[in-house]
C-alpha cells in the first residue's frame, strides 16, 4: 500500500505532499520524504556506471527502511516525485507505471493557466486523480 506521495520542486521546495494512512504519522512520513531528497541528489550527481540507465527519469529504490520502501523519480524539469510504500515486495514495473501516470497528472495540473509555477499545487482535480492512481497501485499485477 502506498502511504505517501510527494512532489518536490527544483529548489527542494515542497509542491504537494499527501499521506494515505489512517494513523497520525504524517510527520514521520514527511521526515522520510525529506531524507530521501539527499539520496536523490546523490544519485543525480554521482550517476552509477550503468550506461543506458544514465539519465533515466525513474531513479528506482532510493532506500529501504524497516517498514517502508522509498522510490524516486526526477523529471527533466528537475521536479522530484517521491513514493513511500509499505509493500516490501514491489514490482519495478508497477512503480514505473505509477510514476508515469503520476507524471501525466502532474503535467496536466501545472498546465492549468491559473497555477503559479513553483507554488504548491492546490488543484482538487489533481488530488482526486492522485488518490485514484494510488488506489489502483499494484492492482494490475494481481489481475
Amino acid at each position: 500500500m502506498i502511504v505517501c506521495v510527494a512532489v518536490v520542486g527544483h529548489q527542494n521546495n515542497p509542491l504537494y505532499i499527501q499521506s494515505f494512512t489512517e494513523a497520525d504519522d504524517a510527520l514521520k512520513l514527511h521526515h522520510i520524504v525529506h531524507c530521501s531528497l539527499d539520496v536523490v541528489d546523490e544519485r543525480v550527481n554521482n550517476p552509477k556506471k550503468s550506461g543506458p540507465m544514465l539519465n533515466e527519469t525513474f531513479l528506482g529504490l532510493l532506500y529501504p527502511t524497516e517498514n517502508y520502501k522509498v522510490y524516486g523519480y526526477l523529471t527533466n524539469t528537475k521536479v522530484k516525485f517521491i513514493l513511500v510504500t509499505t509493500d516490501l515486495d514491489v514490482k519495478d514495473a508497477d512503480v514505473r507505471n505509477f510514476f508515469r501516470r503520476f507524471h501525466a497528472a502532474y503535467v496536466d495540473a501545472v498546465s492549468n493557466p491559473f497555477h503559479v509555477p513553483g507554488k504548491k499545487i492546490t488543484s482538487r482535480t489533481f488530488a482526486d486523480r492522485v488518490s485514484s492512481i494510488v488506489k489502483s497501485f499494484g492492482l494490475s499485477s494481481t489481475v
Partner: peptide, 19 residues
Amino acid sequence: YQVGHQLSERYTMERPRFS
C-alpha cells in the same frame, strides 16, 4: 514564457534527462 514553460513540461515527459 508561461506557454513555453508549460509545454516543455509536457513534451519532455517520456524522455531521459538532458546531460
